[in-house]
Design a binder for these strands. Structure first.
Lengths: 241, 241
DNA sequence: TAGTGGTCTAGACCACATA
DNA sequence: ATGTGGTCTAGACCACTAT
């Protein structure tokens, strides 16, 4: 409240709140902008700056009409051994992962995918669009391209909330294994922003992978995914342990 | 200027500027907040929001008293083969890297470092603090711990702007090779924030590595580094190409 | 309907960099 | 001395979510 030194008021208050947040329960609500302004004797815009600073640090998430809530970062570990699994990553933190198939569409393979899957010109692929949730909060989305001839009748056999991996292994005897994997931190495109239900383009962990089937000795799927970078933290590890 | 639709003014103007930025020369100056307000007929705070939005997207960097400047992101590629070199990474983009030794201090090894370097209790290490520049802009900093017995007389033999790697290979016949490597995106600590000369804690790519010497068959150095995430972009790659 | 966060204007003072 | 970005108050309207 009293800016005794040169450190700005909103950073001072943010520091106070930040310290108290470390022991707060994820998902619990913070004071609103108006409450904060009242209790610290600030203008609403200054109180707002406090909460925005906490949001910038990924300590809270704010949603219009509802409030400001304590966030908890999930480490998204990437190593030479294995590409990370969304569900396992989330479950390890004690939260509840959920994946939902938005749509399954049959279409001619785009050129890039055709090259990666070693398909002939005009070959068809299934494009499977999915959304990822943590504790029922939408935190990511992804697309998978599958050579259509390998998974006949897929739309009927993959239901909305089923695991794609399980469908492939158990339904089609395909055992996808990651051959190429790439992850980077990037600003969401407008399309991904819309899919995530956000206004402003969020930073994301963008992944792209090609999986092969050992039995068939050929690449069978291409996946691209985006996870909100204010929910997941990219961690890379080589060697050690 | 005219909010014909529901998309806010500051995002509309930011979109216009963002498109024009893709063909702008990195380092060149954007209009100031006041100029922007004048040309678009906005209040200064709204013009400010425009430039802050561009900063949030890492398209520009702003510095108090000087102005807003076009930024250029540098990919910081990490793969199973090799840990990236700061200098090579920067040089490949056509920019000018520079590393500067801030200080070299002799001290008892901290417990964590002692374990990683397999040193006896009370063993001494050199702590070398360095700063990283791109085109004379401070973009990172780092610390290196070296077992003191391996590099006698180091403070006199490593000058301010020399390469530490070259000093080790040519001056001491040590050939450090990365054994363990870890990179993650994290908010800078207050200490790192100060070293980077910033007010607000920036997001950084934080790295930590242990290097061994093949000849001696033992770990010889521990390094920790922080690079501004609005200057570098973390990219991880496995397999392929 | 009340409360939340999101946007915008008006106007002020400040610290800092440059000339 | 001027211009830059950084902070702060005052007060307004809006869209969205809950009840």
């Amino acid at each position: 409240m009293a800016p005794s030194t040169d450190t700005p008021t909103y950073l001072a208050v943010a520091g106070v709140l930040a310290r108290s947040l470390s022991s707060a329960k994820p998902g619990s609500r913070l004071p609103s902008e108006n409450e904060l302004a009242r209790t610290y004797g600030l203008h609403r815009q200054t109180a707002r700056a406090v909460l925005q600073e906490l949001e910038r640090r990924h300590l809270v998430r704010r949603v219009r009409g509802r409030g400001t809530f304590v966030a908890s970062l999930i480490d998204y570990r990437v190593g030479p051994g294995a590409a990370p699994s969304f569900s396992e990553t989330v479950r390890r933190t004690g939260a509840a992962p959920r994946s939902e198939t938005e749509s399954i569409r049959l279409r001619a393979a785009p050129a890039a995918v055709r090259a990666e899957l070693e398909l002939a010109t005009g070959a068809q692929v299934y494009l499977i669009s999915r959304r990822r949730f943590v504790d029922d909060e939408l935190v990511g989305c992804g697309d998978t391209y599958l050579a259509a001839d390998l998974v006949p009748d897929l739309p009927r056999r993959l239901h909305r909330s089923a695991s794609l991996y399980e469908a492939l292994t158990e339904g089609y005897d395909l055992e996808p294994v990651r051959a190429v994997y790439r992850a980077e931190v990037e600003l969401a495109s407008e399309r991904v922003t819309r899919r995530l239900g956000l206004d402003a383009q969020p930073w994301t962990i963008a992944t792209r992978g090609i999986a092969e089937c050992a039995r068939l000795r050929r690449p069978i799927e291409v996946t691209a995914g985006w996870l909100r970078a204010d929910v997941f933290r990219l961690v890379v590890e080589f060697g050690g342990r």
